[in-house]
Amino acid sequence: MAKALGSIGKATKAIETYQHVITLLESSKGAESKHLVVPLLSLGNLLLKEGRVDDAESHFTRVLNIYTKVYGENDGRIGMAMSSLAQVKCALGTY
């Protein structure tokens, strides 16, 4: 639902929906569950697209922390999370 809302230009409603999903997953699966990764990444990407770079950074950092904890530092998924975080750092001008 959130992805569809974001695609049709209703970013505010999409952000609210992602946040609701994240809250539900946190309460049922835990704050560091791997099930949070997809909505966190999606929300981060939407926030980045909307120019809310500071808000996006916290979500991508959280994904990186979850992947590191669940899969270890040498897993390939860490690189994907780092790439997303690098996009934010670049947008912030902190290379």
Rank of each mutant, 00 (worst) to 15 (best):
K10Q: 15
A86C: 09
R77E: 10
N65S: 13
I8M: 15
C90H: 04
Y71H: 12
V88Y: 11
G79H: 07
S28H: 05
T68E: 15
E16S: 11
L64C: 08
L64Y: 13
D54T: 15
G30R: 01
D54W: 03
H20R: 14
G30N: 00
A91P: 02
T12H: 01
K69G: 04
N65E: 11
T23V: 11
M82S: 13
I78T: 06
L5C: 06
A56L: 09
K29V: 06
D55G: 03
G9L: 12
V70T: 14
K29Y: 08
L40E: 10
L46D: 07
G9K: 12
G51H: 12
G76R: 03
G30M: 08
I66W: 06
E16R: 03
A31T: 13
G76D: 07
K29F: 10
G79D: 11
E16L: 02
K3M: 07
L48D: 01
Y95K: 12
Q87M: 07
A11F: 05
K34I: 08
S83K: 15
C90Y: 07
V37W: 01
V53C: 10
A11G: 08
S84T: 10
L85M: 09
V37K: 02
P39C: 12
H59W: 02
S27Y: 01
V70P: 04
L40W: 05
I66G: 06
T12F: 01
L36T: 01
S28E: 13
A31V: 13
K3G: 10
L36F: 15
M1Q: 08
T94Q: 05
L92T: 06
R52K: 15
L47F: 02
Q19L: 11
S83R: 15
I78E: 02
G76S: 06
A91K: 12
V21I: 15
L48W: 02
K69P: 03
G79C: 07
H35A: 15
Y71D: 11
N65D: 07
I78N: 04
K13N: 13
L43E: 01
K13Y: 03
Q19D: 15
Q87E: 11
Y67C: 13
A4M: 12
V70S: 12
L92C: 01
M80W: 07
A91T: 10
A81R: 08
K34Q: 12
I22Q: 07
A4C: 09
K29Q: 14
S33N: 04
S27A: 15
V38G: 00
M1A: 13
L43G: 02
N74E: 13
F60S: 06
C90W: 02
A81L: 10
N45I: 04
E50A: 13
K49C: 00
S58L: 07
S27I: 07
K13R: 15
K89S: 15
A2H: 12
L24D: 04
H20Q: 12
E26L: 08
Y67D: 14
E50N: 07
T94G: 00
L25S: 03
T17P: 00
I22C: 02
D55P: 05
T12G: 04
L64I: 05
A2F: 14
T61H: 06
V88C: 11
L47E: 10
K3R: 12
I78L: 06
S7H: 14
S58K: 09
V70C: 03
I22R: 11
N45P: 06
Y95C: 14
S42Q: 08
N65W: 01
K10E: 14
G44T: 00
